[in-house]
């Protein structure tokens, strides 16, 4: 389904030369997405492209800030997920050529395992399950950095939530779009 739609779009673009006259500069648009050219909204795509890295950086900030300030793995993961939601809204469903090549279940799995194992690690050091410790490093140029062991739990949760959002985009977003686009789509 994906392929035929994408090639349709290209064919159409090639047909009329007038179409190219106001074609936007490609580099400002999203790569790896397969939305029909007629449905593209240039402004949203441009905003998505500009905002996407910022939102991801913000989500990572939330992830690291989580222990002492508001934030944490859950909200970080959700914010990162929102970045992908924005990309999806602007660019349509992700196809195989997209930059995200990891399947969401794998991401969820790795996140869940990381989070739970972090809870079990303290036992190896004679602590209690889910206990956390903090370490302070002196890093040249950056100064003192304090790392709490529960950060790894947060990283696990971050990956888990991001995976869940991506999976939702896959099943409830593009899955439904594909259902509707398929011949005889919609309700039986």
């Amino acid at each position: 389904m994906t392929d035929s739609r994408a090639s349709d779009g290209q064919g159409e673009a090639a047909e009329g030369a007038w179409f190219h006259s106001d074609a936007p500069a490609e580099r400002w648009l999203l790569s790896g997405y397969s939305r029909d050219p007629r449905e593209r909204t240039i402004l949203l795509e441009l905003v998505a492209r500009v905002v996407f890295p910022t939102v991801i950086v913000f989500s990572v900030y939330l992830l690291f800030a989580g222990h002492y300030r508001s934030g944490g793995g859950f909200s970080g993961g959700l914010v990162a997920g929102q970045a992908f939601v924005l990309r999806y809204l602007a660019g349509g469903r992700l196809d195989d050529s997209s930059t995200v090549s990891m399947r969401p279940p794998v991401l969820i799995g790795i996140g869940l395992t990381t989070a739970v194992l972090t809870g079990l690690v303290p036992v190896l050091f004679g602590g209690v399950v889910l206990e956390s410790a903090s370490f302070t490093f002196a890093v040249p140029l950056l100064g003192k950095i304090k790392v709490v062991s529960s950060l790894f739990l947060d990283i696990g949760v971050y990956l888990l939530i991001l995976g869940v959002v991506l999976d939702l985009l896959r099943t409830l977003g593009s899955g439904i779009e594909a259902d509707i686009a398929a011949p005889g789509g919609g309700p039986r």
Partner: peptide, 15 residues
């Protein structure tokens, strides 16, 4: 409680 959760993650990754 924790072992099956960790294993569920692995099981999902090895889907």
């Amino acid at each position: 409680v924790l072992l099956p959760l960790a294993a569920a993650g692995l099981s999902m990754a090895f889907g």
